[in-house]
Amino acid sequence: MLAHYLTLGLEESATDEQIRNRYLERIKIHTPETDAQRFQDITQAYEAIKNRRARIYSRIFTGRNTSDMEAALLYLVRAGRPKPKLVGLQELLRAPKPA
């Protein structure tokens, strides 16, 4: 479940409409021609959380529907790519700098 939300960049409280809008937004950017893997991930995520029934189904049956554990975990890792964090100047200046 979490992986799907992360892939679409949504909170778990997102509504069906928000999910659909985000899906349409993302597949316009990540088309099968430009980034096939990302497109596949986005479609998979959308199918898994597109409505309440699908979300509940994913929550219960993820364990059984995971045919390739490594691929599933890597999907989670891809989904969990760190997002840019909104920081102000002071935080930026205080932060430890790269060596």
Binding site: P82, P84, K85, E91, L92, A95, P96, K97
Partner: peptide, 10 residues
């Protein structure tokens, strides 16, 4: 530059 990111890349 960790401050710019939420979490880290696994």
């Amino acid at each position: 530059f960790p401050v710019l990111w939420e979490g880290r890349q696994v």
